[in-house]
Simulated assay, not measured.
Amino acid sequence: MKTSVIARAAAAVAVLGTALLAAPGGAQAAGRDGTCDSGEFCLYYNSDNAGSVSDFTTSISDYGDTQPSCYEFKGAGNGQGLCVKNNAASVWNRTGGSVTVFYNSGYAGDSQTFAAGAKGNLNATLKNENASHRLGGGTSTKVDMSDALYVGGGGRLTTGFDGYVNTPGRHEGIDFAKASGAGVKALLGGTVTNVVEGGTSLSTIAVYNATYDKTIIYLHTNPLDSVDTGDSISKGQQIATEASRGASATHTHVEMRLGRRTLAAKSVNDPVLDNPNPNPFWEARGYNVR
């Protein structure tokens, strides 16, 4: 009996030893399960690493805009189930290298880099304005405005800022064009301050961004029925379709104005520029002005 007990005890120790040898030294990345494991980069819905978490083991060039195709917050807490894009407030980098969060999809635009092991809040530019992240580095590539403005890309710049050639006055914005009916997207998130349908006259969509204290105004489009004054919209969200309301040809006039505005500055037959050159602003947001 005594020999049998000793034998069984020895066997148990052997099994335990094998299990200990096979066990990893610490928690390892377990895939996207809503827990921030070692080896993962994690985005949190709230500041100070609070709220629901979305965990990643790879770079993501575009989080996606809508369910069910977007990357969502998976952990319990505020924000669970919402898309990560333009909804994150803080991060925890549990990978072995730096990770950079970008304002635009495709690793473009303003960025913020977090060292290995770092916890922190996204800065004022990127908080709730996050579109992609890259593990291991922060190389940024810019996106052409003519592509970013339209669903599916493929637009073209037709008239630059202050670029009138055959029209009297000073052009206060930048004109882009694509086929009539093409989807038009917001180049910057914010609050809608004005929507004018236009019909056969000039249409207007004005979107104020408090972070930059600037209003982006879109003219000549056919505004979507779902876009109303007071709405909060995200960068990349479709707001209209391409049209020619108040213009002789189909195009979208994009105008940057300082402060909170509702209407565009006068261009045609007005010899004075009210707006500053917007190109440096757009380039700082990760866009090529073309």
Rank of each mutant, 00 (worst) to 15 (best):
A10G: 10
A14K: 11
A14C: 14
A14I: 14
T18L: 15
A19K: 10
A22E: 05
A22H: 06
A29G: 11
A30H: 11
D33H: 09
G34R: 04
L43T: 10
Y44M: 05
Y45W: 15
S47H: 12
N49E: 15
N49R: 15
N49G: 09
A50I: 04
F56Y: 15
F56C: 12
S59E: 02
S59P: 01
D62R: 04
D62H: 13
Y63P: 00
P68M: 02
S69A: 13
A76K: 03
A76S: 14
G77L: 08
G77S: 10
G81K: 05
V84T: 13
K85N: 08
N87F: 03
A88Y: 10
R94N: 15
S98H: 05
V101L: 14
V101W: 10
G109T: 00
T113M: 08
A115D: 13
A115I: 08
N121W: 08
L126C: 06
K127Q: 14
N130D: 14
N130Q: 06
A131T: 05
R134P: 07
T139E: 15
T139P: 01
V143F: 02
A148C: 10
V151H: 10
G152Y: 09
V165Y: 07
P168G: 00
R170M: 07
H171N: 09
I174N: 01
I174A: 06
D175N: 03
F176Y: 13
A179S: 14
A179K: 08
S180D: 09
G183S: 06
L187E: 06
G189V: 03
N194F: 11
E197D: 14
S203Y: 00
T204D: 01
I205F: 03
A206H: 06
Y208C: 02
Y212A: 09
I217Q: 10
L219E: 15
P223Y: 04
D228I: 02
D231S: 06
S234I: 09
S234T: 12
Q238W: 05
A240Q: 06
A243L: 02
S248N: 13
H251W: 01
T252G: 01
T252W: 00
M256V: 02
M256R: 12
R261F: 07
T262H: 09
T262D: 11
T262F: 10
L263G: 11
K266S: 14
K266Y: 10
P271G: 09
P276H: 08
F281S: 04
W282S: 02
R290D: 14
